[in-house]
Structures are given as structure tokens and as C-alpha cells.
């Protein structure tokens, strides 16, 4: 496993009130994303454990783009990756944001 960590400044904080959300599954070409609301509103951390080694630059681009485009402030995001493509990663991250912003029942 290769471990990567990012700590980014986020312009917008995540909406909603849920404490956490999880999406995806760890399988070949897939990943799970756990989102926890545990940082200051302008901070987003992303920790990645990936089965595919040597893709640090791709991850760097994907997570920076995600934090720039989505409301990710305040979130501690943890990823277990089974070798997903960048578009799948971006999709799961967006799903994760939607899920943590869902109204609580």
C-alpha cells in the first residue's frame, strides 16, 4: 500500500449537519471514501491508502480540483483505494459530499 496525505485550504465548508458519511467499496477499480466533519471550516484533509503505487501526482491533481470545486471545508476525508481511475475517484468524492450534506432523518 502506498500512503498519501493532503492538507488543503478550502474556500467553502461542507453543508448539512451529519457527522460523517461513507460511500463506495474497496474493490478492483473502486474505492471507499469516509468523510468526517472534524476540522476547522477552512480546512480539508485527505488521507489515501492505495493499492496502485506511483500515482501521487494524479492524486494531487484530483484532490486539489475536488477541494477547489466542492464544499469540502471542515472535512477529514479518508480513502481506501483498490486502484480506481481518476474519474471514479472524483465521482466518489462528489457522492461523499452529497451524502454528508443530506438532511438527517
Amino acid at each position: 500500500m502506498e500512503k498519501l496525505s493532503f492538507r488543503l485550504t478550502a474556500a467553502r465548508s461542507a453543508g448539512g449537519t451529519r457527522a460523517q458519511a461513507i460511500v463506495g467499496v474497496v474493490a478492483s477499480g473502486n474505492l471507499e471514501v469516509l468523510l468526517e466533519r472534524s476540522h476547522p471550516a477552512d480546512t480539508c484533509t485527505i488521507d489515501i491508502a492505495t493499492a496502485a503505487h506511483g500515482f501521487g501526482a494524479v492524486w494531487d491533481a484530483v484532490v486539489r480540483d475536488f477541494v477547489a470545486r466542492r464544499s469540502a471545508g471542515g472535512l477529514r476525508i479518508s480513502i481506501n483505494d483498490g486502484g480506481a481511475r481518476p474519474d471514479t475517484v472524483a465521482l466518489r468524492l462528489a457522492q461523499g459530499i452529497r451524502k454528508i450534506e443530506e438532511p438527517e432523518r
Binding site: M1, I22, D81
Partner: peptide
Amino acid sequence: GPELREISPHLAIFDLPEQF
């Protein structure tokens, strides 16, 4: 729940990905 990160302690021996 997954936030407790009770992952398998054995998959790392095989360098396999874990799930929370």
C-alpha cells in the same frame, strides 16, 4: 462503524487494501 477504523490486522501482511 467505519469511523472506528476496525480494519483487518492481517491484510497488510499481504499488502492488500483494507476497508474501514
